[in-house]
Design a protein around this nucleic acid. Structure first.
Length: 802
DNA sequence: TAGTTGGGTTTTTTT
DNA sequence: AACCCAACTA
């Protein structure tokens, strides 16, 4: 009995073929990760390969961590010496060691999207390009594509015609790259391209890595771009032991340069490649797979394959149509609540709601919060993109690497020090003339003639930084961050800049400190880690830069997950909702408008990814109308829904399909168990209008603006709420509501740390009490039910002793 | 220099 | 609806 006995025939073939190029075409849920981990185990266990000689590349840090863990469980030794990482972190690791050989300092910083935008603004200013002429984002995206194709600024200029647009982009690319280097910074695309350049220019370095990595494995190969392809090709050129795993049907990252040809042409590049197809699915039931197969069959350019399973038909897929987005979201929230109530084996973590665009998450969040359903939102505004976090990180960057002009300029007047644009421009001009960094120019403020009044303020700033630098040398990251916050009186700054949610923001900084502490602990644990002498601070900043949204998800929390279809790749859930199944949204209008059908085919692959996330149960929802950019948009049912054979669905689409959904009266659709009028927007706790409404000033755009409708008093609300409750049927999920209407915003009589009792969840401890515009948001750690976030007015928590 | 206001633009997806 | 920017005022 060996660990390999549990593999099926094809999986074994893939595991045992250790030599030469191997292409594993792994359908969704076909046990791909099992194959990779068993293959690594087999190499080490049976073939005597040193773990040090194995490289495995995954798509996300989360996947990397899981893979290491699973290898460990299989063989129990040596997994820590295998290189398992993402493309980007692998490149950083190599560049930290050798980037001085291509003209960067090894302490380079990493620029994220926001930094890129900022830098591009400077480029525009310097070259005198008009933002109205060519959108900066268009230039950045052209540069990104160029880098993904390994095209240098010089090559770009050479290859592209001399028409105005191309010339501007070429010049901007050149200047952008020059400024990056001056700031000792690389953007995400540079990490890949510079590593390739390093390999191309320095044979010794390449040889070194070729000799180190005897066996290379690449996961999600269908999403590699040309730079990644070249990287892998170079690395594996010595021994050709390259095993790539992927599924051309799940290629969904064309917009960031992924080249589907990499996987489709693998056999052309390596004629001796062994090809293994994994088509047996271990994840989903028959109906789900049939739907996935039927949808993806509409794509033309693909390697034919068909998923199958021996798990029986399972439930039919559910289709639900709604008039508006809020109704759709209400339904999903209630449906989750209902299922959990009816099936004791289900808990929140068994549910995921997937959507095409991040903007769709807002409504869902609102409705889940309303029903006190705990959830986690993946993506959207990343934690590290929040203003307060970026400020603190900029302080850290400035302390760590004074050459990063962007970081210095960001914090120079944050909190306000009375240093204005004029001063900044003068300092910048001085820096440009002398060819020195912005920070060094600040330190020589005495040499800048016209800087009279600002001089004292700037000296204050630089001595602040110098002081923190001294502090950084000996202290922990936590102490350093605390030091920054204290020295700048940052909390006071937050409090008077953001009256509304300053508490949230202060809490975020606390969260950053937590992350710093756990990073530090991690570094001390893995003393063997070859960080190449990089300082604690540099290491932390680097990890922060490369973190992906999905990496944050732990499986310890019992929460519903909300995320985009893109983020969901690689995950699985017992119950999946796909929301917003509408033409123009999914597939996106852009892909529909494109002259060829490649865009729509990519969207269809995204649909395939979404469908195959479901293990047992899949619900597809459609909203006839939806608010987009502040106006109502009506859309027909998504073509992807129509591609699902009708007999797989529990409710017919066709009655109202084939055109705009409002072509037929709403009441003519088939009924199912749902009655007309169900799932209305429950959102009457705030912002609804009625004859009772009064006029009052209201905030719009976060500014005090026009005269608007003021929420009703509790007394006025009563008839409305009674009607609404009768119509919708109050259920246990609305426990707080069923006892009456929510009271107007009122500070609860409990506070953080207090013990409280909830009618449904029992006793618990208040962890967090936040003041939000509508109501107090309270986070409670329940003894039995775990942690929940809810609105105080609805939760009806009762303070108890002990 | 800082704060306010009006107008124009925007989002598809992410390492 | 939310964000960004430029112009204006104090």
């Amino acid at each position: 009995m060996s660990i390999y006995d549990t593999l099926n025939k094809e999986q074994k073939e893939a595991v045992f073929q250790t030599e030469g190029p191997v292409l594993i075409l792994a359908g969704a849920g076909s046990g791909k990760t099992r194959v990779i981990t068993h293959r690594i185990a087999y190499l080490m266990d049976e073939c005597g390969v040193n773990p040090w000689n194995i490289l495995a590349i995954t798509f996300t840090n989360k996947a990397a961590g899981e893979m290491r863990e699973r290898v460990d469980r299989l063989i129990g030794f040596g997994s820590e010496s295998i290189w398992i990482s993402t493309f980007h972190s692998m490149c950083v690791r190599m560049l930290r060691r050798y980037s001085d050989r291509i003209g960067y300092e090894n302490s380079f910083t990493i620029y994220d999207t926001d930094d890129q935008k900022q830098l591009m603004k400077d480029v525009y200013k310097k070259l005198g390009i008009d933002t109205g002429d060519i959108a900066p984002r268009a230039v950045l995206s052209a540069i990104s594509s160029a880098k993904n194709e390994l095209i240098s600024p010089a090559q770009y200029k050479e290859q592209n015609g001399s028409d105005y647009r191309n010339r501007v982009i070429g010049d901007a690319y050149e200047e952008y790259q020059r400024m990056l280097k001056a700031n000792n910074a690389m953007d995400f695309d540079d990490l890949l391209m510079m590593t390739v350049i390093l390999f191309q220019n320095d044979d010794a370095v390449l040889k070194n890595y070729q000799e180190r990595f005897h066996y290379i494995m690449v996961d999600e190969y269908q999403d590699t771009n040309s730079a990644q392809f070249e990287l892998i090709r170079l690395l594996s050129a010595g021994r050709h032991n390259l095993c790539v795993v992927g599924d051309d049907d799940q290629s969904i990252y064309k917009f960031r340069g992924a080249n589907i040809r990499n996987i489709l042409d693998f056999e052309k590049l390596y004629p001796d490649a062994k090809v293994v197809k994994l088509e047996q699915n271990y994840r989903s039931t028959g109906n789900v797979l049939d739907a996935a197969n039927a949808v993806i069959a509409n794509n033309t350019n693909r390697k034919p394959k068909k998923l199958w399973c021996d798990q029986g038909r399972g439930n039919k897929l559910h289709f639900r149509r709604f008039n508006t987005g809020p109704e759709e979201a209400s339904f999903i929230a209630q449906d989750i609540e209902r299922r959990i109530r009816q099936d004791g084996s289900l808990s929140y973590r068994d549910f995921a709601v997937l959507y095409r665009t991040n903007a769709q998450s807002r409504l869902l969040e609102e409705k889940l919060l309303f029903l006190s359903i705990p959830y986690d939102l993946i993506g959207g505004t990343n934690f590290y993109e929040r203003r307060e976090i970026r400020d603190i990180l900029s302080y850290l960057k400035t302390i760590d690497n004074g050459v990063d002009d962007l970081a210095v300029r960001r914090i120079l007047n944050v909190p306000k020090r009375g240093i204005g644009q004029t001063t900044i421009d003068r300092v910048q001009a001085f820096a440009d003339e002398g060819g020195i960094s912005f920070y060094d120019a600040l330190k020589r403020i005495g040499d800048i003639p016209s800087a009279g009044r600002a001089k004292a303020k700037i000296e204050e700033f630089t001595s602040l930084i110098e002081g923190l630098r001294i502090r950084a040398a000996g202290s922990s990251l936590k102490d350093l961050i605390d030091g920054i916050v204290t020295a700048t009186d940052y909390e006071a700054f937050l409090k008077d800049t953001y009256e509304e949610d300053s508490a949230d923001r202060i809490a975020n900084i606390g969260e950053l400190v937590n992350k710093a502490v756990s990073y530090e602990e991690g570094v001390f644990e893995e003393a063997g880690d070859e960080r190449g002498g990089v300082s604690l601070l540099t290491g932390f900043l680097e990890e922060v830069a490369l973190i992906a949204d999905i990496d944050q998800v732990g499986d310890s929390d019992d929460r519903v997950l909300l995320m985009t279809l893109h983020s969901a790749k690689g995950l699985e859930f017992r119950n999946v909702y796909m929301a917003g199944m509408e033409e123009g949204l999914f597939p996106s209008q852009m892909s529909i408008d494109a002259p060829d059908d490649e865009g729509v085919e990519e969207e269809r692959r995204l649909a395939y990814v979404g469908i195959t996330r479901a293990r047992e149960d899949l619900t597809l929802t459609y909203a006839m109308s939806r608010m987009v950019h502040g106006e109502v948009r009506y859309s027909p049912v998504s073509r992807f829904l129509l591609e699902i054979p009708e007999e797989l669905l529990d409710e017919s689409i066709r009655i109202t399909s084939g055109g705009y959904a409002d072509e037929q009266p709403y009441s003519s659709r088939s009924s199912g168990y749902r009655k007309e009028g169900d799932y209305d927007d429950y959102d009457f706790g705030h912002k609804y209008s009625s004859p009772y409404a009064e006029q009052a000033p209201v905030k719009k755009d976060n500014r005090l603006k026009a005269v608007y409708v003021k929420p009703h008093t509790a007394e006025e609300k009563k008839p409305f709420i009674a009607r609404s409750m009768a119509k919708n049927g109050v259920n246990a999920g609305l426990s707080g509501l069923s006892k009456g209407q929510p009271s107007p915003k009122q500070k609860p009589d409990y506070t953080e740390g207090d013990r409280v009792r909830h009618v449904k969840f029992g006793d618990g401890t208040v962890r967090l009490l936040e003041d939000t515009p509508r109501d107090y948001k309270v986070t409670v750690e329940f003894d039995e039910a775990g942690q929940k976030v809810m609105y105080a007015a609805f939760a009806k928590l009762e303070k108890i002793d002990g």
